[in-house]
Design a protein around this nucleic acid. Structure first.
Lengths: 248, 248
DNA sequence: GAGGTCAAGTGGTAAGACCAGTGGAGATGT
DNA sequence: ACATCTCCACTGGTCTTACCACTTGACCTC
């Protein structure tokens, strides 16, 4: 084993993860009350401030509702949580959630072309130059992971050029969900990042400043891998693998 | 004054808002170091745990980076923060940020039709019935604010039918940004929520289960108000209003 | 001057106390 | 017997204090 760096998880982090797990796995349903802070601290063997910090983060993520004097109750996270929760839902207990992955792919396919259209309208020639530079680096390597990184940088620049804060923040959230699994997913995405030609066509369209051409070009970049992966996920769902339902 | 309910802001909330303000307003640039927790506690006249809780929330939002033993530094929030930060950026010091509002409108116009297309493919006839019910309520009132609420519920159901966690969470985030300003924005959106016919056409398309028809219908619902508001924002930007740059 | 050492300062954690709301059990009144 | 009121136990909110763990950089040594 190549001496991987030690993971230093803080106590509140640990508590947060545990409670979050109980909530997203449904062991604590919406409306249910959590144990009191003191009780949680006792059960988990940590101090109350540690528990408190974790619960406050849960509240900030809109997963629970704390009421002064009353009990802290679980909320329906699917109706209240924001996109920042995505990384926690995409990979759970170390496994990728197929239905979440599907929705990520769908969202990517819907948003990418829209962002490209905006970027084409606002980018200018400097954008094309920067993108070409990134693409040259992408074309210059055979390593799937490296290609992923360069492709991410490509889209990063496109999002920048789109000059839209909302899309920028969405991209950040999606990226935060994707990056932890980047290495594992690199083989699956190899098909996409290998299509350097499609990226070059997109770059040209962005440089030319025509939104609709850019939108179509972005679609051509994203659609093939999206559809093949969606097909694979559907096939996976059709053969329901063993559903252990184990809990630690 | 109609005896508005008292706002009970907790101490950590207050600290969080203050530090967040310094960061998003640029008074604390990316890379700069924050004062130590003890020093902040002293300056703000609160206890260290209170400061700590606020800083941990800042870290969870990826606005700062805390290092054990080292200083806490400010990150470039535009590159690291997630969509959950949007509410804090859309309205700053009680004022709507025009460029952020523009990007919200653009994103809404891009995403709404995509969600409608997914919902059409997956909704079924039950969806159309639920939507019709909501629309009847929308048509039954003349109050702009009430109409907004019903329109939000309409889209809420469409998003549900799309059965996509990512779009669901995006919707939650956008809604969290929009709702605080709903009353103020209701007059501006009156044009859109008054178009009950367009909503009915969209509902029919969703019930029919044809994604492309639904996509086009959703576009027709969203585009008119979007374009007129974008135009208004552009005109506003062209006449740069007094730029007080005041700080409290 | 390059290197190692150590102390000061930082964030991390714990314990304990008290304040401030909430809600239900019990006392009180009818 | 019922409705109402009162009060207290329990909840989260805040502060104080202390100590541990880590980083940094100044200083000392070679």
């Amino acid at each position: 084993m190549p001496l991987q760096p030690v993971t230093r998880r803080s106590v509140p982090d640990e508590v947060f993860d545990q409670v979050l797990g109980e909530v997203v796995d449904g062991q604590l349903g919406a409306g249910e009350a959590l144990p009191s802070e003191r009780r949680l601290a006792e059960v988990l063997g940590v101090s109350r401030p540690a528990v408190r910090e974790a619960l406050q983060r849960m509240a900030a993520t809109r997963l629970v509702e704390v009421r002064h004097g009353g009990a802290t109750t679980v909320r329906d996270f699917k109706r209240s949580a924001g996109l920042d929760l995505l990384p926690r839902l995409l990979v759970r207990r170390g496994k990728l959630d197929a239905s979440v992955a599907r929705s990520v792919l769908e969202a990517r396919l819907a948003i990418g072309p829209a962002v490209a259209a905006l970027a084409a309208a606002r980018g200018g020639p400097a954008l094309a130059a920067a993108l070409t530079e990134t693409l040259d680096r992408l074309a210059g390597t055979d390593d799937d992971v490296e290609r992923q990184v360069h492709a991410l940088e490509f889209w990063d620049r496109v999002v920048d050029a789109a000059d839209s804060l909302v899309f920028r923040l969405m991209f950040n959230s999606l990226r935060a969900a994707y990056e932890p699994a980047l290495v594992a997913l690199a083989p699956l995405m190899a098909e996409e990042v290998g299509q350097v030609d499609a990226y070059r066509v997109l770059t040209a369209a962005l440089g030319a400043g025509d939104p609709e051409t850019a939108r179509a070009a972005a679609d051509r970049v994203l659609r093939p891998a999206t559809e093949s992966l969606l097909g694979a996920l559907a096939a996976l769902a059709a053969v329901p693998s063993t559903h252990p339902e184990e809990r630690p």
